[in-house]
Amino acid sequence: MTHAPATRRRFIRILAASGAALAAGPLAAAQPPEPVTWQGIALGADAQMQLLHPDRAHAEKLIALAVAEVQRLEKIFSLYQDDSALVQLNRSGRLDRPAADMARLISEALQFSRATDGCFDVSVQPLWQLYARQLQAGKPLPPAPRDLQRALASVGWQHVLVDEQAIALARPGMALTLNGIAQGYITDRVTELLRANGLEHALIDLGETRAIGRPEHRDAWLAGIADPANRAQLLGKVALRDQALATSGGYGTPLTADGSTTHLFDPRSGLARPRWASVTVRAANATTADALSTAFSLMDEHAITHVAREYQAQAWLLAHGQGQQLIRIG
């Protein structure tokens, strides 16, 4: 599909983005550096960057470098740019001499698939295509079992082959979506770029959030987990100290009026009814937080605990119909 994506709704509120959000502003000391900020869209998600640097002109140059890096990576990973590397791969089933970022991200995605017993799977795009056709035809969701099984025949991370020479999709009809990991990957690459250019304190939110250093006169950046039923209300606050945070929730992109069917597809059954109302993950980097929050949406507490321990990550889970009580793991 080539239509433009709808902007993803924000699940995480960055509390340090304004002094009014906290009892005392994060930049409340005498003459601290003014934050240099940017807001825009990255891979269909609301995006923002907040840089703290004593040289404002230098910070503005870093913003320009970061935006250029986002645009470069979007040309590789986007499902909605006809000439992107991902669209070319999906169109032909093979991509020779892939860009290093493409090969690296696909390889990392397959590692997350192994670690989560396939709950994270970038090959679920045929399911999205099936559901989109149902919606466009005015047919009910979920699709009929026969149609789900036909789509599932083209799903399976084990059939994605990658090395430095080529990426190949080994099953007929296969197609990939990187929407469950690319935002985190881009966030990490931008973070690396900023650090390489001397930036020590920043908050990067390109669909997923990563902190560098800390805000002025505070120990950590703060992010709030939004209540799916009322996103103006917070269910909890999470401190970020050179860490990343990502949230997945089916409520962000409901496909049915009652919200029971969402954009989070189960690669095992083909259904799109996540186990949890929302999942937030804090990890060492945004790629990990992004992929795990997607996978954990389909996993039970025991499995989440095992994988979170492996990645030294923490998770906050909200069960369906359980009010506002978050379950913390790790």
Rank of each mutant, 00 (worst) to 15 (best):
L148V: 02
L148Q: 01
L148K: 01
Q149D: 10
R150N: 03
A151H: 04
L152F: 13
L152D: 06
A153E: 11
A153T: 06
V155Y: 01
V155H: 02
G156A: 06
G156I: 00
G156D: 04
Q158W: 01
H159C: 06
V162G: 03
Q165Y: 00
L169Y: 03
P172N: 11
G173D: 01
M174I: 07
A175W: 04
A175G: 14
A175S: 15
L176S: 07
L176I: 15
T177Y: 00
L178N: 03
N179K: 14
N179E: 13
N179A: 11
G180E: 06
G180H: 03
I181C: 09
A182K: 02
Q183R: 15
G184T: 02
Y185W: 13
I186G: 03
I186C: 05
I186Q: 03
T187A: 13
D188K: 05
V190M: 07
T191C: 10
T191S: 12
E192A: 13
L193D: 04
R195I: 10
R195E: 15
A196F: 01
N197Y: 12
G198I: 03
L199H: 04
L199R: 02
E200H: 11
H201F: 01
H201A: 05
A202S: 07
L203D: 02
L203E: 04
I204R: 08
I204M: 08
D205F: 12
L206V: 10
L206P: 07
L206K: 08
G207M: 13
E208G: 10
T209L: 09
R210H: 15
A211F: 03
A211S: 14
I212V: 13
G213L: 06
R214F: 00
E216D: 11
H217N: 12
D219W: 07
D219K: 10
D219M: 08
D219H: 10
D219T: 08
A220V: 04
W221H: 04
W221F: 15
W221Y: 15
G224Y: 10
G224S: 12
A226K: 14
A226Q: 14
D227M: 12
P228S: 05
P228D: 10
A229L: 13
A229G: 13
A229V: 02
N230W: 07
N230L: 14
A232K: 11
A232F: 10
A232N: 14
A232C: 05
Q233S: 12
L234G: 08
L234I: 10
L234K: 07
L235T: 12
L235F: 10
L235H: 12
L235C: 14
G236P: 12
K237V: 14
K237N: 13
A239K: 15
A239P: 09
A239S: 15
A239Q: 14
L240T: 02
L240E: 01
R241C: 12
R241T: 15
Q243N: 06
Q243Y: 02
A244F: 05
L245R: 07
A246R: 08
A246I: 10
A246F: 08
T247L: 10
T247F: 15
S248Y: 04
S248M: 07
G249I: 03
G250P: 01
Y251V: 09
Y251I: 08
G252K: 11
G252L: 11
G252R: 15
T253K: 14
P254Q: 09
L255T: 00
T256E: 09
D258A: 05
D258F: 13
G259P: 04
G259M: 04
S260F: 00
